Computed example of a mutant assay.
Amino acid sequence: MSKLLGYIFTVVFYFTFGLSLVIFQPIQWICYKFFGYSAHKWSVDILNFFLTYSQFTLLNGISFKNNQQLPTDRPIIFVANHQSMYDIPSLIWFLRKHHPKFISKIELTKGIPSISFNLKYGGGANIDRKDSKQSIGEIIKLGRRMNEKNWSTVIFAEGTRAKDGKMKPFQVGGIATLLKIVPTAIIVPVAIENSWKIVRNGSYPLNTLLPLKWTVLAPIERGDKNPEELVLQAENAIKQQIGQ
């Protein structure tokens, strides 16, 4: 039934999702060029509200649980598993008060309405995976912005999407680099469930009637733990939440 409905509703979803990207491209440009960071961030937040709830056109449910009392006066490194591109809008919308930034492939800064503009001017790190020196430099710059502005960063620590929903081992590199620059940051795991099922059949048809879930888990203070221990603790917390 889910796949059958997907043949009907996927077209509606792509129209809604794509229209949001096209409409907010000039809105972002105006906000950034004439009113600065705060206005641009507002436009990005509202865009991701629409991108998040466009899942309703697929009859998919959205559940974002955050029962944690997270600080807004210190940097946060959100560490999440990664299942599909549809993980991202909800993280931006529901964590908006923490100014979440992303580490993205530099190729994504061109050619995608709204998304490329935000990646280019939103304050995240755009890395060239073929150039380790450039990648580290971008992450260091992001860490400095986190220190200066109390921003947060979301890191998909698997390094790639888990297309079957099974978590891959978390990588330490990017998190370790950030912790050197932002030693006061706390680690906050975020467990993502069922988003991989949206694209289980590929880009068409998308799946419907899915309970999409994001759960913010208990913060992990650095203390005397090294980056490897922190990342493993976050990985295990997410595995426990999603039952792996």
Score class of each variant (00 low, 15 high):
residue 158 E to G: 03
residue 113 P to M: 15
residue 78 F to P: 02
residue 34 F to Y: 10
residue 174 G to I: 04
residue 116 S to D: 08
residue 179 L to I: 06
residue 6 G to M: 00
residue 202 G to W: 04
residue 202 G to C: 13
residue 7 Y to G: 09
residue 150 N to P: 01
residue 212 L to E: 01
residue 224 D to Q: 15
residue 227 P to D: 06
residue 193 E to Q: 12
residue 240 Q to H: 05
residue 162 A to T: 05
residue 54 S to Q: 03
residue 118 N to I: 06
residue 147 N to W: 05
residue 162 A to W: 02
residue 239 K to G: 01
residue 231 V to L: 12
residue 74 R to H: 14
residue 92 I to H: 10
residue 14 Y to K: 12
residue 22 V to I: 15
residue 154 V to W: 03
residue 95 L to G: 00
residue 138 E to I: 03
residue 230 L to N: 01
residue 167 M to P: 08
residue 82 H to V: 14
residue 110 K to F: 14
residue 219 P to G: 12
residue 150 N to M: 03
residue 51 L to C: 12
residue 220 I to Q: 11
residue 220 I to V: 11
residue 149 K to D: 07
residue 98 H to F: 08
residue 6 G to R: 00
residue 68 Q to I: 00
residue 135 S to V: 09
residue 238 I to K: 02
residue 16 T to A: 14
residue 44 V to A: 13
residue 92 I to V: 15
residue 123 G to Q: 05
residue 151 W to Y: 15
residue 171 Q to A: 04
residue 156 F to P: 00
residue 16 T to C: 14
residue 70 L to H: 03
residue 81 N to E: 13
residue 244 Q to G: 02
residue 85 M to E: 10
residue 88 I to L: 11
residue 72 T to I: 12
residue 38 S to L: 07
residue 209 L to H: 10
residue 107 E to N: 07
residue 141 K to V: 09
residue 21 L to C: 13
residue 200 R to C: 12
residue 22 V to T: 15
residue 25 Q to D: 11
residue 75 P to R: 08
residue 97 K to C: 12
residue 86 Y to L: 15
residue 53 Y to F: 11
residue 114 S to R: 09
residue 25 Q to E: 13
residue 17 F to V: 08
residue 14 Y to S: 13
residue 118 N to P: 00
residue 189 P to W: 04
residue 232 L to H: 11
residue 131 D to W: 15
residue 205 P to I: 01
residue 10 T to G: 13
residue 58 L to E: 03
residue 71 P to N: 07
residue 10 T to V: 05
residue 139 I to V: 12
residue 99 H to R: 05
residue 91 L to N: 02
residue 123 G to A: 09
residue 67 N to A: 12
residue 184 T to Q: 12
residue 239 K to A: 00
residue 228 E to P: 08
residue 42 W to A: 01
residue 123 G to W: 04
residue 217 L to C: 09
residue 14 Y to L: 10
residue 4 L to M: 12
residue 39 A to H: 09
residue 69 Q to C: 04
residue 238 I to G: 04
residue 188 V to A: 02
residue 2 S to Q: 13
residue 11 V to R: 15
residue 143 G to M: 06
residue 24 F to S: 02
residue 242 I to T: 11
residue 15 F to N: 10
residue 9 F to L: 15
residue 209 L to M: 15
residue 57 T to E: 07
residue 122 G to N: 07
residue 31 C to H: 01
residue 131 D to C: 10
residue 99 H to Q: 09
residue 203 S to P: 11
residue 44 V to C: 09
residue 165 G to V: 09
residue 168 K to W: 07
residue 11 V to K: 14
residue 222 R to H: 06
residue 100 P to Q: 08
residue 39 A to E: 05
residue 128 D to V: 03
residue 68 Q to A: 02
residue 24 F to R: 08
residue 13 F to S: 05
